[in-house]
């Protein structure tokens, strides 16, 4: 409880991020959006949805869709291991919020980051979309990409993406 209160107070100048790995890459999400972290378990497939929608999971009687971030980011697929985890995030849109889970290789750490140390994501050209990035930060000489989860998991964006790929 205390930790949470602290983080709210600190949110302005020193937000906390939960960092996780996908292959060799490090990513972070705002910790206030993380509802829980749980081990990978089999999910129920939803028919006729893109690959990265792994399916739905029963999370204490709510049906929660699960997105595989590796597939979403077009990274190499891997077998799920005991360290594979689902990070359950609350996603906000137009004032209402819903719950989604993302599958990542492993969670690493909770980062306290000075806001001034967050660098805007550079322009990678057309190849990499920076719309889903909140910024970047260097931690122990490793670069962590901070994700804008509200945009990344927005239903409309997902649907639009789907129609492009199909």
């Amino acid at each position: 409880m205390n930790a949470k209160d602290d983080s709210i107070n600190r949110d302005e100048d020193q937000p906390q991020f939960l960092s996780f790995t996908l292959g060799d890459e490090d990513y972070g999400v705002n910790i206030l959006r993380v509802q829980e972290i749980r081990g990978w378990e089999e999910v129920r497939d939803i028919p006729n949805t893109p690959d990265y929608i792994k399916g739905v999971l029963n999370l204490r009687n709510t049906v929660v869709p699960i997105v595989d971030l590796r597939i979403r980011f077009n990274l190499k697929k891997v077998e799920y291991t005991p360290t594979t985890v689902i990070i359950v995030l609350s996603v906000e849109k137009d004032g209402s919020s819903h719950v989604m889970g993302v599958v990542v290789d492993a969670v690493s750490d909770v980062l306290n980051i000075e806001r001034k140390n967050i660098k805007a994501a550079p322009n990678f050209g057309g190849k990499i979309n920076t719309r889903y990035m909140n910024g970047m930060v260097m931690v122990d000489n490793r670069m962590v990409v901070l994700l804008e989860t509200d945009k990344l998991l927005d239903q409309d964006e997902l649907a639009a993406l789907e129609s492009i790929s199909s």
Binding site: I46, N48, T49, I53, N61, T62, V63, M100, Q155
Partner: peptide, 14 residues
């Protein structure tokens, strides 16, 4: 019945 729309969206046939 639990809604899929609550956290995801409508799925055809479901």
């Amino acid at each position: 019945i639990k809604s899929l729309e609550q956290n995801y969206r409508r799925v055809d046939g479901v």
